[in-house]
Amino acid sequence: MKRIGDGAATRIGLIALAVIMTTLFLVIPLAGIFYQALAEGMAPFWQNLTSTFTREAIGLTLLIALLTVPINLVFGIFLAWLVTRFTFPGRRLLQTLIDIPFAVSPVVAGLLYLLLYGRTGWLGSILSEQDVQLMFAWPGMVLVTVFVTCPFVARELIPLMQAQGSAEEEAGVTLGAGGWTLFRRITLPNIRWALVYGVILTNARAIGEFGAVSVVSGSIRGETINLPLQVELLYQDYNTVGAFTSAALLAALAVVTLMIKAMLEWHTHRREKTA
């Protein structure tokens, strides 16, 4: 039987459409970033890449990711463990609450933190008496990034841990395993790939986050400007090459992240086949 749209013409048409769309919306803009960065040759590109401000921006971007990923890794595992292995009142509510950072616009998140931790905020006024400054300094940028990226790990783990159930762990308990052994020998190996996947997503978002950090950054050059903010700043400054150099750096990081992700998927796929 022949279905509608099964003809060769339709098929070719659809494939062509997909290819054209992908080229227009993904390939050309991505290539454009690198083209613009190198538009005036290698020298200005290199100069922008190695300038003090760019180096500081790279340093801050990595610092944010370096702190955000471990924090959310621990937090995500803990949360997923809690909602999939225990029943307690408010469990459903907690599962919904995890998604708040996804639902709230990052700018709003930034503003919330600013109102809370700013000099005139509820907590901020107490902190400022102790001479502790979170907003308009790097700790604030880490704080909002942790908030924005906190669902990634938990969201990856929860469905998997729910599907796997707790049978293996219960078996472990009957054989006399303690909490830590249980986690290290049974839970962790089971969730390993989902965990790595969650980390990759967290890392990608932590590096690329713009909205929330821009609210709390105070944009002090060489101090609280990360790569995404640097792109915006240089672009406003009519330094197109500089802006696209930083953008190219971010794009390159994204490509590397995607490659790692693809490798992992290929790896898990192969494992599932052999299993």
Partner: peptide, 28 residues
């Protein structure tokens, strides 16, 4: 920014940076 947090920032940022570029900014 308090002295301690500046120091911490310097240390972590320097570590991150030296991993990234294999160099450390020497300016104070």
């Amino acid at each position: 920014m308090s002295v301690r947090s500046t120091l911490l920032r310097r240390v972590v940022a320097t570590a991150a940076l030296s991993m990234a570029l294999g160099s450390t900014p020497a300016f104070s």
